[in-house]
C-alpha cells in the first residue's frame, strides 16, 4: 500500500534523484532595538539528495533561523540557498517543514489537517483521500482520522505533523526540533519511526535538534554549530548503516566528543575545578 505512494511518479520535469541543497556564504542579521545583530555568518553546507543531516548547537546559535530561511518563510538574507540549483526566495511545496509545536489547526480533524497540504497540489481530488489515508497509516495513526488535535497525545500530534509534511512528497523535509516537546520515552519511539519513514521515503531531511544523541542516531552527518554569531563549527560523519543500534560504540564515542565540544567554554576560565578521574580528551 505504501509502496504505491512511493511509486507515484515524480512531477514532470523534475529529475529523478532530486533534493540537493546547497548553501553558500549565508549571512543573516536582525535589527533588534535599532542595533543590527548577526545571527548567521558564513554558512556553507551541501546536502546530497536523500541524505539525513542533523544540526546541533547551543540555543541562540541560529539553527531555527537557518531552517526558516531554507523553507522560505524569511527571504531577507545575504548569500545563496539553492535547492536543485534553484534559488530559494519563498515557500514552495518542494520544501516541507515540521515545527517543534505541531501546528495542526485545532479546528480541523487529523484527516482535514493532512488534506489541507494537498489543497494547492495537482493531485486529483479523487486520489486525495486515499493518499491521506496512506500517510496516516505511514505514521501509525489509522483509527484517529476524525480526532481533533486536542484529543491526540503529544507524540501522536507530532507524528500527524510529520504525515502532513510528507503528504506533498517534498524533495526536502526540514525538521525544526520536531521531538523537542516530547517526553523521553515517546521521543525514542518517534525517533525510531522517523528513521523507518526516512528509510522508506528516502527524501532529503534536515533536522535541527539540541539532543546530540538524537542527532547522531538519525543523521548521516551531524553539523555542529557555534553561537554568537551562528556558524558551523564542524561537520561529523556518522559512518553507520541504517537502521542503527543505539548501543553502537561509535555513536557513544561521537556523542562524548560533540558534547565536550559544545560544553567547553570558548576560553576556559583558569579557576575551573577539575574533577578527579575525569578523562581529558
Amino acid at each position: 500500500m505504501i509502496h504505491e505512494v512511493l511509486a507515484r511518479p515524480a512531477p514532470a520535469g523534475a529529475p529523478a534523484a532530486s533534493g540537493a541543497l546547497a548553501i553558500r556564504d549565508l549571512h543573516k542579521s536582525f535589527t533588534i532595538g535599532g542595533a543590527p545583530r548577526t545571527v548567521l555568518e558564513g554558512i556553507n553546507l551541501d546536502i546530497r539528495p536523500g541524505e539525513f543531516v542533523s544540526i546541533v548547537g547551543a540555543s541562540g546559535c541560529g539553527k531555527s533561523t537557518l531552517l526558516r530561511l531554507i523553507v522560505g518563510l524569511d527571504d531577507d538574507y545575504r548569500g545563496e540557498i539553492r535547492l536543485d540549483g534553484e534559488r530559494v526566495s519563498t515557500t514552495s511545496l518542494d520544501r516541507g517543514i515540521v515545527f517543534q509545536d505541531h501546528r495542526l489547526f485545532p479546528w480541523m480533524t487529523l484527516e482535514q489537517n493532512i488534506e489541507l497540504a494537498l489543497l494547492n497540489t495537482d493531485v486529483p481530488k479523487a486520489r486525495r483521500a486515499q493518499i491521506v489515508a496512506e500517510h496516516i497509516a505511514l505514521v501509525n495513526l489509522t483509527g484517529f482520522e476524525k480526532a481533533y488535535p486536542h484529543q491526540l497525545s503529544g507524540g501522536m500530534a507530532q507524528r500527524a505533523a510529520i504525515a502532513r509534511a510528507l503528504v506533498t512528497e517534498p524533495k526536502l523535509l526540514l525538521l525544526d526540533e520536531p521531538l523537542g516537546a516530547l517526553d523521553a520515552l515517546t521521543r525514542v519511539r518517534v525517533q525510531n519511526e522517523l528513521q523507518r519513514i526516512w528509510m522508506t521515503q528516502r527524501s532529503t531531511m534536515l533536522m535541527v535538534t539540541h539532543d546530540v544523541e538524537e542527532a547522531l542516531y538519525l543523521g548521516d552527518r551531524v553539523v555542529v554549530m557555534a553561537p554568537d554569531p551562528g556558524r558551523i563549527r564542524r561537520i561529523v560523519e556518522v559512518d553507520l548503516p541504517h537502521p542503527r543500534d543505539r548501543a553502537a560504540p561509535l555513536l557513544h564515542r561521537l556523542k562524548d566528543e560533540i558534547l565536550a565540544e559544545l560544553t567547553a567554554a570558548p576560553s576556559a576560565p583558569s579557576n575551573l575545578v577539575h574533577l578527579p578521574g575525569r578523562e581529558v580528551r
Binding site: F30, T31, I32, S59, G60, C61, G62, K63, S64, T65, R68, L73, D74, Q100, D176, E177, G180
Partner: peptide
C-alpha cells in the same frame, strides 16, 4: 525555542 525571539513572530 530560539525562533520565539524572532521579530517576525
Amino acid at each position: 525555542m530560539a525562533s520565539a525571539a524572532l521579530p517576525a513572530l
